[in-house]
Structure formats: structure tokens, C-alpha cells
């Protein structure tokens, strides 16, 4: 059930990093992977904010330690604030956060949990291939957070409802959406959230829905 985004897709990406060398490195890798992609860059929070407003972006790759303006001090809090506003204003934006400061993201968990777009976290020290995987997942609208960010199994009540409708009543997404009085898109978003909570990610030869059911029963989310 791996539905990778085709590498030939015509997508727009914004890469935010205050280090020119890292920036060009990331841009190179992304350009190689997605030759048809249009890639923008920003080195400050201010610039990134402006670009997110101006154009319709498919993906933002964001380093958390950035300055507000040029010549300002690079600070994680600046990146956190930028991320917070981006999620508030563009609920469907796909985001990859590049940072080693996973702990400082914990406070944004309530916002990340309600974010409708893809959201993945890629440590800067990840291998290139893993990084590209996280980019791909984000473009798919999936959610990935590393273990350090989680406090055991944590879910939201509406995700549990989705699991119950699907595995106890055997409903399909559309029927679930009707029952819960939400959009099908939102149901899919809840799936990816609960899958992240259960640690179920796209893998070769794995049926994610079935894998999710197995894990949910293991954890006692459904009886």
C-alpha cells in the first residue's frame, strides 16, 4: 500500500534554512529526486512567512533554528513560532521539520495533532535516503513523529471513533465520514495520525489498514 508520490510530479517546494551550504545541499537532493519540482528557498522566518503567503506550496522543508531577519540570531523559538503560524494559517500544508531539537516540538503537539496536511520530522543527521522518505510521506499527507516526541500511546477521541467504526462496524471511510459528520479527507487524516501513534508506516508489502487493526487490538484501543 505504498503510494509514493511520483517523482515526475510538478510540485512546489520551499526550503527554509539559515545556512547557505545546507540549503543548497538540500535543494540539490530534492531537485534530483523531483526533477520537475519548482524549489524556492528562504533563510529567515520573515522571508519564509512571506513566501508561504504568496504562492501555493505543496511542501515546506523547515529548519527550526533560524533567524527572524537577516543578521538576527538564529533561534529555535523563531522556527517554532514560524511553524505555529504556518499550521494555523495553512491547515493543509505539507511540512517536513528538519531539526535535532525534537523536544522543543512537544509543545506544538496539540497543533500538530490537528494539522490537516502531511507532517514529518527528519533529523538533520538522517541519511539522504531516509530524508527523502520523510519528504515523500509528508507529500502523501502522512504523519511521522520520532519516538522521543511521544509519551507512550496517545490518541485523540475522534481517532478512536474512526478505529471503532472501521474495525468494529466494518465501515468504509466514506461511511465513517457520514457517521461522524466530517469530510472523507479528515477521516484519512485521522488514519494517518492514529497510524503514527501506533507506529505504522508505509513499508513494502505491508497492508497498513490491517497492520493498524493488529496494533490497535494489541494496545487495547479496540476490544
Amino acid at each position: 500500500m505504498n503510494q509514493s508520490v511520483p517523482t515526475s510530479a510538478e510540485i512546489t517546494i520551499l526550503v527554509v534554512d539559515d545556512h547557505a551550504s545546507v540549503l543548497s545541499g538540500t535543494v540539490n537532493i530534492l531537485q534530483q529526486q523531483y526533477p520537475n519540482a519548482e524549489i524556492f528557498t528562504a533563510q529567515t522566518a520573515e522571508d519564509a512567512q512571506a513566501q508561504v503567503h504568496q504562492q501555493k506550496l505543496d511542501l515546506v522543508v523547515l529548519d527550526l533554528s533560524i533567524p527572524e531577519k537577516l543578521r538576527d540570531q538564529a533561534q529555535i523559538s523563531t522556527g517554532i513560532q514560524l511553524l505555529r503560524t504556518m499550521m494555523q494559517e495553512h491547515a493543509a500544508l505539507n511540512i517536513v521539520v528538519q531539526s535535532a531539537h525534537v523536544k522543543s516540538l512537544i509543545r506544538l503537539k496539540p497543533a500538530i495533532n490537528t494539522h490537516e496536511g502531511g507532517f514529518t520530522i527528519a533529523d538533520k543527521s538522517l541519511s539522504m535516503q531516509e530524508m527523502l522518505t520523510k519528504v515523500d510521506w509528508a507529500l502523501q499527507g502522512l504523519m511521522f513523529t520520532p519516538k522521543e516526541m511521544r509519551t507512550g500511546l496517545e490518541v485523540k477521541p475522534e481517532w478512536l471513533e474512526v478505529l471503532n467504526f472501521a474495525f468494529l462496524e466494518g465501515l468504509q471511510d466514506r461511511a465513517i465520514a457520514e457517521s461522524m459528520n466530517i469530510s472523507e479527507r479528515t477521516v484519512r487524516n485521522y488514519w494517518t495520525k492514529v497510524q503514527d501513534a501506533l507506529g505504522v508506516y508505509p513499508e513494502e508489502g505491508i497492508n497498513m489498514r490491517i497492520q493498524t487493526e493488529i496494533r490497535a487490538r494489541e494496545e487495547g484501543l479496540i476490544d
Partner: peptide
């Protein structure tokens, strides 16, 4: 013994 936390922080 805690298995699952159902949380909503709005």
C-alpha cells in the same frame, strides 16, 4: 499499567 491516553488540548 497505563496503556492509552486519550487527549484533547485545544
Amino acid at each position: 499499567t497505563l496503556k492509552v491516553k486519550v487527549v484533547t488540548f485545544e
